[in-house]
Simulated assay, not measured.
Amino acid sequence: MKLNAAQLARQLTDSLAPVYVISGDEALLVGEAADQIRAACRRDGSEERLVFHVDRGFDWGQLHDTSHSLSLFAQKRLVELRIPGGKPGDEGARAILAWLDSPPPDTTLLVSLPKLDGSAQRTKWAKALIDHSHSRFIQIWPVDAQQLPGWMRERLAAEGITPSAEALDLLSTRVEGNLLAAEQEIQKLKLYCDAGHLDLETVQRVVADSARFDVFSLVDAMLQGQPEHALRILLGLRGEGVEAPVVLWALAREVRNLASMAHDLNRQIPLDRVFASQRPPVWDKRKPVLGQALQRHSAAAWDQWLQAAQQIDEQIKGQRPGSSWDGLSAMVLAVAGVRLPLGAGPTH
């Protein structure tokens, strides 16, 4: 059963479904939807939480064992299954279908997926996750440029802030394409608003647009194989107070797209067709940059960095030891072509 974000909030107040699936690439909205489900599970008495990350060597028997074992610490539990590549494979598909057909009692399964394209949604396992009576499927759609002002107005209103038309226009322009940055700016603006009113002068003074473009410069330097320049930009962003989630958002989005393109190339799809099949299609001026990066690294490498991005996200959230900035540095250098010592990066 498909739900939108508003329907999810209402459904969670009624009763918990056995399975929830969140699909999308908008990190802020995906994270907020997952947080809603986690909070509902805690309210319902879930005290145990198990998290499985699906990578190339993932043992799907773990999911089977979990579905047939009793919780050691609590009567109710939440099991999170994160599939950053969006493709569970044949064994994973069978495991997912088996769980849906016979979900274990007192257990909620939360599946996290990137945005599924049309062909992926037509697979048997994806159709089951979308349509099965035990499942609630939440598709997270990106907020485009036309929708952004309305989205920003609702977010500001939730914080008790009423913007002028000019302030809303400028704020939307400066954060376009990065909802994580938008949310951070809204939290910052709360400190500067006089009696809940946001004017143009306040936005001009408080909200800088440099960080957004510097993050994209970081991505380009990384993909063009310029490790020293990329690392200098990364350290500059950190020094300017740009938060690690904003940087990770930009890097992970690019790595996810390139991983998908690399697998298409492995299937002997011509590069021009791969670029044209992206949504939106790759701009002409970006094709040389992406083409160089795809020639430099294999599909397996892009998958590895996608997993690294997930681990950095866990470091940011305090769920994994280590420095998220060290993880970001290692990832930037590796994608830029630096051969790092074995064990370097966010996994250790």
Rank of each mutant, 00 (worst) to 15 (best):
L3M: 11
N4F: 12
A5Q: 12
A6L: 09
L8K: 10
T13V: 15
L16M: 04
P18H: 06
Y20P: 01
I22Y: 00
S23P: 12
A27H: 03
V30M: 07
E32K: 15
A40Q: 03
R43T: 14
R43W: 12
E48I: 03
L50S: 09
V54D: 04
D59C: 15
G61Q: 13
H64T: 14
S67D: 03
L72R: 00
Q75P: 00
R77S: 00
L81M: 10
A95F: 04
L97G: 06
W99A: 02
S102G: 14
D106Q: 01
T108C: 05
L109I: 03
L116Q: 01
G118W: 07
W125C: 01
I130K: 12
D131L: 15
D131W: 12
D131F: 13
S133I: 11
I140W: 01
W141P: 07
W141L: 07
M152P: 01
R155F: 14
T162Q: 07
A165L: 11
A165T: 08
A167M: 13
S172C: 08
G177A: 02
E185Q: 09
I186Y: 09
Q187H: 14
Q187E: 13
Y192V: 04
Y192L: 05
G196E: 10
L198S: 02
Q204P: 03
A208C: 06
S210V: 04
R212M: 01
F213V: 14
D214V: 05
S217T: 03
P227C: 08
L231I: 12
I233G: 00
G236V: 08
E243K: 01
A244N: 09
V246A: 08
A250M: 05
A252P: 05
R253N: 10
R256T: 04
S260M: 08
S260D: 06
A262W: 05
H263Q: 15
L265D: 04
N266M: 14
R267D: 15
R267C: 11
Q268A: 06
L271S: 06
R273P: 03
S277D: 07
Q278C: 12
R279V: 09
P280Y: 05
V282K: 02
K285H: 10
K285C: 13
R286N: 10
K287F: 11
L294I: 06
L294G: 00
Q295N: 11
Q295R: 09
S298Q: 13
A301M: 12
A308I: 02
A308N: 08
D313W: 00
E314C: 05
G318F: 07
P321T: 10
S324P: 11
W325F: 11
D326C: 07
L328E: 05
R339P: 09
L340F: 13
P341S: 13
G343R: 13
